[in-house]
Design a protein around this nucleic acid. Structure first.
Lengths: 131, 131
DNA sequence: TTCCATAGTTAGACTAAGTCTAAGTTATGG
DNA sequence: CCATAACTTAGACTTAGTCTAACTATGGAA
């Protein structure tokens, strides 16, 4: 199990205490937290207060460095995903909860994408209700 | 070609002048406008000013009635799609523009979804650059 | 050590998307 | 006509997220 400090170093992100706490929080949950969830979740983890700006800056830095991912499934909030490997998402339309779905049956790219577009990646979002 | 009034009536939405203008605007573009785009776009279309609240209310009403769809691909803005038939989306990561991609090669549902989830629908978003 | 430069963090002001409210307007049925 | 319900309005409000200017660590170079 690699330490969070090492993980950040490996991605070229200087592991400050604030960044380690924030990364730890996102990496240790499957709840796909919003930035505000992270802000609440890391409160009290350090002797100093972690400011709102630092939370947002750090989340953006971690996304840019490929440590975590953004997920957009609903208006008004961006969620963060500790799972950066290829996978789909399932959104519970009642609760807004997001579940990771393994990447085991990959679709073909539609014919219409050939030529017109350069595809960097794609993502499938399923909507429904968890039982 | 069915009139917008009829279309709204068919979906159980009373076709007020404001609603017709707003629906016309969204239905006549492929640009996937945001609510603010709609607000700007319908300005001056009626003798009276269409208020922000009416634009947001009407867009939500049209989505609930199945006349148009919401698309979430970026933080900070919800976009509206006149195409309610099954299709994928391609997001230009430079410009944010969204293109509709035909539903011609449907993937299999992952095995892991069987049983655990009731799937109402799903959507594939491709990210990349239009050429 | 001390000095400096750079990167990071902070509180709080600010912006922008979207909702809410209370009052006014329009349509409809009796 | 009138009463009621549905709709629209301007503007206040809420909330996610960014920006700013001051402060704090860190890491050389002398």
């Amino acid at each position: 199990m690699i330490s969070t400090e090492e993980l950040l170093n490996n991605h070229g992100v200087k592991p400050t205490p604030q960044r380690v706490v924030i990364a730890d929080f996102v990496l240790s949950t499957h709840e796909h937290p919003t930035a505000e969830d992270v802000l609440k979740g890391v409160a009290g983890q350090l002797p100093v207060t972690i400011s709102r700006a630092t939370v947002y800056n750090t989340l953006n830095t971690l996304v840019a460095a490929g440590v975590i991912r953004e997920v957009f499934t609903e208006p008004g909030a961006c969620r963060y995903d500790a799972n950066v490997s290829k996978h789909h998402h399932f959104v519970d339309t009642r609760t807004g909860r997001i579940f990771d779905i393994p990447w085991d049956e990959v679709p073909q790219l539609p014919r219409s994408l050939k030529g017109r577009f350069k595809v960097h990646g794609y993502e499938i979002t399923f909507f429904g209700e968890a039982t």
